[in-house]
């Protein structure tokens, strides 16, 4: 098989994920786009592992590790989104602007909320 096919599909999926991360407004949809980007990287890892015939199969092992880390990431990410939703009543990342520049003197609780808003 030509190596361009899996590599090109990975590029297209990664760009789709970039578009989703930048253009989506709901935090959970942003997480879905991050999953797409991670999957593009996984496809690259597997394709190059099969191409190079690595004796350690580093690509496939790293793909398994990436999948596990992605599962951990989605769990933590959803917990953060749910905590933000419970506190603010919205999961709209355009409205979580406590860390934005030029928003003036924030309320005293702002530093504590930075972690959540940045998520």
């Amino acid at each position: 098989m030509h190596l361009i096919y899996p590599a090109g599909l990975a590029v297209l999926l990664f760009s789709t994920g970039v578009y989703g991360v930048l253009a989506r407004r709901n935090a959970i949809l942003v997480l879905m786009s991050v999953e797409l980007m991670l999957n593009a990287v996984n496809l690259n890892l597997v394709a190059f592992d099969v191409w190079l015939r690595d004796t350690l199969h580093a690509g496939q092992a790293l793909t398994l590790f990436t999948i596990a880390i992605a599962a951990a990431e989605i769990g933590i990410g959803l917990a953060i989104v749910l905590a933000v939703y419970r506190n603010r009543g919205t999961s709209d990342i355009d409205k979580l602007r406590d860390t934005a520049e030029g928003s003036g003197p924030d309320d005293p609780a702002a530093p504590a909320q930075k972690a959540e808003a940045a998520a």
Partner: peptide, 10 residues
């Protein structure tokens, strides 16, 4: 696609 690339377990 993984199956087609013979990475069955993945």
């Amino acid at each position: 696609e993984y199956l087609l690339l013979t990475a069955e377990f993945i």
